[in-house]
Every structure is written in C-alpha cells, then in structure tokens.
Design a protein around this nucleic acid. Structure first.
Length: 228
DNA sequence: AAATCAGCGTGAACGCCACT
DNA sequence: AGTGGCGTTCACGCTGATTT
C-alpha cells in the first residue's frame, strides 16, 4: 500500500483527537490525525512525522498525519490502513494461513455488525476482523492502547460466527517494523484481554503480523508471536 | 460506578433531482 | 427507466464530560 504526496513535518501539539498542530517546512499548519486513539507515547512535541497532502477541496485541513517516529522507529498510525494492508496481502496470497481463497469481500455485514473481510475457501466461509496495533514497549506490541468496548464486541461476534459454522480470525497488524511479539493489554483493558482468551478457546484464530513501514508505504511483514 | 452523549474530520453511503 | 451529478447524512475512530 503506497501513499501519494507524502511530506515531512514536526509534531507540536494535539488540541483534540482529530487535529494536530504541526510544522511543515518550518510553517505552522493544522492537520487531520488519522487515528483517534491516544497515541500518547508517539505524538510528543518535536517528533518527526510524515503527512499526506490531500487534494480534496472540501476538507478543512490540507494534510493528514500518517506516521511518526518514536525514537528511531517509524510507526504508522493510520487507523484505516490495516484493513487495506491485510486485504492486499490476502489477494496477493502472501499469508500462508489465508491462501487460495475463492472469494473475498470487504466490509461484509453479519447480523447487526460488520466484519472487515469475508471469505470463502472450498466449502468453508469465514470472517476476519482486523485491528491495527500502534502501542509498543520494549519490543512487545500491545492492543488496545485504550479500553475498547467495540473491540470486545467484535470478539463476541466472532465467537458467535464460529458457533454458526463460520471460521473466525482476529488479525492484528503491528504498524511498525521488526516487532515480533504481541500480547493483549491487560493493564489498560482487562475485559478485552479476557475476551480474547475466551475467543481463542472458542476457536477464533488469532493472527499477528508486523509491517514494513517507510515514509510512503506500509505492507505486510513477518508473522509475530501471540502471547496470551 | 457505570452508562450515555457530544464532539470532531473524513469518506462512504445515501437520497434527490435533472437530465438522457 | 436509467444515469450522472450534487448535496446531505451517517458510521467510524475515540475521549472526557455529564448524567443516571
């Protein structure tokens, strides 16, 4: 997945979760933040960032904040892109666990919810829910970075889908390079962590991959270990 | 303490009208 | 009836304040 029109900037502050004050070429600019999560460890004053210039004249901001450095590690914080990266990887048969699917559709409704990806493989059908992981500490990645009722609900729905004969996957995409371990964030959201265990016991397959992140690209990386 | 709600920017989805 | 264009609404991502 390649971003067009990427420019470099410096993060200053974030008055609310949608917008940030930054410097581009030394000039102050108000930009859109593509991630409404906390990202507190990442978005600190003076941090080098990359932004995408928008050509949509109706937008209130000319740029979207896509990625940022934490120390010397570049982290993609675009919360819409993991979905696309995983879809792309599936289509290109890059995932051994999800190979040779004969039908793939995004944003498929199931009961009163919606999963990111629906697929058919032989006579099996399944759903994949994709989550982006941006939180990392000492080489260990974690999700969520804030309590997520929605995430827990998605897990319950995957469990439900499995009870109804579907396959169910939770796909965690670490939005940075070279992180090889993942664990649910017990401290921030114990309910989610416990539900993840329950989902695992119920047969939901938990997959985790890292990414290859550059200033203008994010693609699927290597498989990471899931520690429950 | 838990549940609800407003708020914000974007882009997709939707609805409507004016045309073929 | 079908299509294209335009404007409007809504879901999504989430926090923090407010209400129960």
């Amino acid at each position: 997945m390649i971003y067009e029109d990427i420019v470099e900037g410096v993060f200053l502050e974030r008055p609310n979760r949608f917008i940030a004050k930054v410097l581009i070429d030394g000039n102050p600019e108000t930009v859109h933040v593509k991630n409404t999560g906390r990202c507190k460890e990442i978005l600190t004053e003076g941090t080098k960032i990359f932004l995408q210039k928008s050509n949509n004249p109706n937008r209130k901001t000319k740029y979207s904040l896509i990625s940022a450095y934490k120390k010397d590690m570049l982290i993609n914080i675009d919360s819409q892109v993991p979905n696309e990266v995983v879809h792309e990887a599936i289509i290109q048969n890059k995932l051994p666990e999800l190979i040779d699917l004969n039908y793939v559709k995004r944003e498929q409704k199931y009961k009163n919810s919606r999963f990111d990806i629906y697929f058919e493989r032989g006579n099996k059908k399944g759903f994949i829910e994709v989550k982006g992981v941006t939180l990392e500490k000492d080489g260990l990645s974690m999700f969520p970075d804030a309590p997520t009722k929605r995430g827990t609900k998605h897990l319950e729905e995957l469990i439900d889908a499995i009870a109804n004969g579907y396959e169910g996957y939770l796909f965690l995409l670490i939005q940075m390079n070279d992180i090889h371990k993942f664990t649910p964030n017990y401290i921030t959201d114990e309910t989610f962590a416990k539900t993840l265990m329950k989902a695992n016991d119920a047969g939901v397959k938990i997959l985790c991959y890292n990414s290859l992140v550059t200033r203008n690209e994010i693609t699927i990386g290597k498989k990471a270990e899931v520690l429950l």
